[in-house]
Computed example of a mutant assay.
Amino acid sequence: MKNIISILFFMTGLSLSAQVGIKTDSPKSQLDVNGDINLRSKIVVLNVTDNTLSQGNNDQILVSQGEGYPPIWKSLRIPEYEPNKFYLIFNNSFSDKTGVKFTNSEQSSITAKNTAFTKGADISSLPGFKKIAGLSQPISVFSTESKTYFQFETVVQANLPVNGTPDISIDYACGIFVDNKLVNLRQRNLKASSAASTFITHNQIGIVTNLSKGQHDVSVACSRLGSYRTASDVVLAIGINADTNINSFITQSSLKVDVYEIPQVFNPIIN
């Protein structure tokens, strides 16, 4: 009988008071429980669209919609990963039609290429290199154990004359940089051919391991390294046309970035 009377008084207090606190003298909501709650049955939430009560489905959680709105049930999915295996976590591709051009006077002053072109060299130490603007992009890394792959493609052209004797050609180089540090470089030579304004396709693949966690800036920069028996008006164009026999659509550049990681951070997905 005492228990029944106590329950009646408690229920009466709930109906008469705007705020009720359990183990607290200053409740901050209509019901404020300072301690553990043991639920032996179910939780239901009002569905405002049809005014029904929903108890959710198995493995769902309650998610707040903000002040003044009832919470809703959401499904929580956590990706399953096998330990010590690499997974593709980030991938993106970028393109550029602007490219870079080099006149005869914009040749790089680098002479000792074997010492200048080393992994980790800062772009500021490589005079004459120009970035291809549209390929400078941010990427994200979430694990300390990662492998990042790069695939760069473009077209290189110069307004060279029809080839004669001796050979006419231009040396150039393109580098892939992460946070302005060189991670991959390829040098090539563009030769004059039997047709004027010759062009070639340039392909380049690079890899860097274990970038630090966080955001990094990836870029591609190229340089004119040397010219052999070229006229003073010969322009080297990378990712853009130097003459009208091809156009900017044909010469456009692309960069593909794939980041494989051994996952260390698990980001749940809520539907």
Rank of each mutant, 00 (worst) to 15 (best):
P166Q: 04
Q157D: 00
D243Y: 12
C222I: 12
S223I: 12
T201D: 04
D171W: 10
I246Q: 11
T244G: 10
V178Q: 06
L190K: 01
S248D: 10
V234A: 01
Q204F: 05
S254W: 10
S193F: 03
V162A: 08
S227D: 15
L236Y: 02
A242D: 01
I200D: 06
S197D: 03
N203Y: 04
L160I: 05
Q204T: 05
S197Q: 05
F199H: 07
S169I: 06
V162K: 09
Q215D: 14
L225S: 00
N245L: 03
N184P: 08
P166F: 01
H216R: 06
S232A: 14
G164E: 04
F177N: 04
L160A: 02
A195V: 14
D243T: 06
Q252L: 12
N184Q: 14
G175M: 14
F199R: 01
L211G: 04
T209Q: 12
K181I: 11
I176M: 13
I176E: 06
A195N: 09
K213R: 14
A173N: 08
S169N: 14
Q252D: 06
R186G: 09
N210K: 09
D243H: 12
N189K: 10
S232V: 12
L236E: 06
C222R: 03
C174R: 00
A195Q: 10
A196W: 00
I238S: 07
N203I: 14
S253L: 09
L160Q: 10
A221P: 04
D171N: 08
V183I: 15
G239I: 11
G164V: 02
A231M: 11
I238Y: 09
Y228F: 13
V178E: 13
S193D: 10
T244Y: 12
S227M: 08
N245K: 09
I168F: 00
T165F: 12
I246H: 03
I250Q: 13
F177W: 12
T198A: 08
R188H: 07
S219D: 13
I250P: 03
I250G: 02
D233M: 07
G239K: 04
I200K: 00
I176S: 11
F199T: 05
S248F: 09
L185P: 11
S194M: 09
P166M: 01
A195P: 03
N163Q: 15
N180F: 05
L182G: 07
G164L: 02
I246G: 02
I238N: 11
R188T: 09
Q187Y: 00
I238R: 06
S169W: 11
V235Y: 01
S227G: 10
S223P: 03
Q215R: 14
V235S: 04
G239R: 13
I246D: 00
H216I: 07
L160N: 00
I238D: 04
N247Q: 11
F249A: 14
S193N: 03
A242M: 03
H216Y: 10
G226N: 13
Q215M: 05
Y228D: 10
